[in-house]
Nucleic acid binder design. Sequence first.
DNA 1: TACATCTTTATTTTT
DNA 2: TAAAGATGTA
Length: 721
Amino acid sequence: MNAGLLDGLNAEQLAAVTLPQESALILAGAGSGKTRVLTTRMAWLIQTGRVTPMGVLAVTFTNKAAREMLARLSALLPINTRGMWVGTFHGLCHRLLRTHAQEARLPAQFQILDGQDQLSAIKRLMRAQQVDETRYPARQTQQFINAQKEAGQRPAQVEAFDARTRALRDLYVGYEAQCQKEGVVDFAELLLRSVELLRSNEVLRLHYRARFIHILVDEFQDTNRLQYQWLKLLAAPEHAVFAVGDDDQSIYGFRGAEVGNMRDFEREFALERVIRLEQNYRSFGNILDAANALIRHNQGRLGKNLWTRAGAGQPVRVYEAFNDGEEARFVVEEARALMAEGLPLSQIALLYRSNAQSRVLEHALFAAGIGYRVYGGQRFFERLEIKQAMAYLRLAAHGEEEGAFLRVVNFPPRGVGTRSLELLQSTAREQGSSLYQAARQSTLTGKAGAGMSAFLACIERLKEAASALPLAELVATLLQESGLLAHYRADREGADRVENLEELVAAAASFEHESELSDLQAFLSHASLESGEHEAAPGLDALQLMTVHAAKGLEFQAVFVCGLEEGLFPHENALTQSDGLEEERRLMYVAITRARDRLYLTRAQSRMLHGQVRYGLRSRFIDEIPPALCRWLSPSAKSSMPRRLLNQPTGDLPQPAVQAVSPAPALGLPFFMGQAVRHEKFGYGVVLQCEGGGGDARVQVNFRDVGVKWLALGYARLVAQ
DNA sequence: TACATCTTTATTTTT
DNA sequence: TAAAGATGTA
């Protein structure tokens, strides 16, 4: 009976899926069938009667991963997955807090602030408290508060030894009070509140502990401290936590992810086994060997080596372009060749470290008439017009939320100016009431202006509509009543926004409500927790452009990793951060392991960065890949060849697209900008600038190991490479 | 209040 | 370079 379920699993996968009831860590390498193991494990537990669907808790980081897990589970088993606790950390915490709002000291209709909402709430607070925003930028305050929450700390626990930290802590205090007053909760608060609720409320804790016999965690390496605490609270000692992760793919340290949770988990849950999934079903051998060799340069790994039955496949192609434009041209030509071989465009990915790099690539693709799609950027529920519409909805549902009120009280413009708002805010503060209440009072006493009265009347009508109409009709009504639709229709450049607003009605119509909540409340939460897809329009065959971060979890037949230069990838900012370089290397590891058949690594000797030409050294990551796995396609530029490869035959190279042109030496100096040089003490570097001539000529050199230095040519023994 | 001009700054980002 | 934020002008 199990044969179908367990069919085709390899020995390690099988061992993981059928583990006895004990906590375990599954070290799942890239492309090792991680999701399959996770879903099959869940199905197997249920099918063999070890747990009921309601006794399972499965947690992921993204809505997409949660949806995929549910979809695959329903495909494996004929069960109703509705009501199962499968979701993101935030989604599940939200569910917990809705169910126990009172115990968590939250109003029943609490609203969720996304990152944008949180930032504007903090700006509003700082203005009210007259904090100098040049000394304390709102962004930093936001980061501070989130970091504290993610460390599980309330203001009282924050140690402040200096004035700055004290000021930030005070803002944290004020921010908490403001949120509590308005009945809003930010992302980090969803988690922290849940942790505090479970910690302080023993009845609840025991209830959930009795229920969740099996807890499964996806992408465990990305958990932060708070998420790990949450797991520990929900996991009864006798129950099993099945954590799947890959320390080598931990690339979110910068936002609080703690790879250390893996080691802690191993220790604190007294794990008997760590299962390694090392057989890779995605890439050919050369690509895996490149990834393995690269990641071996990191210290303190849990250790893992990917292998495949697929054979070596193609060599890794390396190309050093003269500049960024030429790098893009190379990518375009190769992409064309791959297309000619019959590869669909959607199977080719262009990966880069930072978004700014997409511009040159896009330009070249556009000029070549190749369809492409750039990932990232603004998402549906983050768009201004959608935010505005949602603000009306939030006011209809809730009313006390100042952020929503301020966002649309004068939008579309109805003559509510700064003065009347300031007046309103001070009365509200005096009375300790919300802006909405204060505004209502001002209409009763006849003090409100026409615009304000119209606004309030609109909200009143929406409140009525909210209880009388189905969701989609409510949204349609709101668009009319508020004047949003009319406003954007009148705008010559508002066509896109009108389209989006209409799509919001469609989204509301297709939104399927969750059991106990009203449609409206559920829709509001949905909009905050799932800000909309970043995915391609299906059926559109386009080349895929994205950052390496965005590519995590995806795979493509051909992958180009562009901009492999010191300073860019690894990024210069990362070098000063602890664990920064290793995280960059993991990022490179993720990039490499996205490729199935073909991997290209490209780099430009110079590129335009911040409006200036920059000469970068070849990324150390290229050098960390064994030359035997690579084929160099670069034009003859000698200085750009790897030193150890200079005498190696290059095989049947295609003709280079563009010949590299050496810039003429300037001012009769023996060195020119962009030239690779070597210094006895400082090592390898690239010439950035030349100055003077004759006896007191100086050159500025960017050394790989010691950074930028000025050298007087009269003294320094600099050798051209 | 809206628009123009200037200054500043420049990773990665889900929920 | 180019976008966002800040400041100044009609």
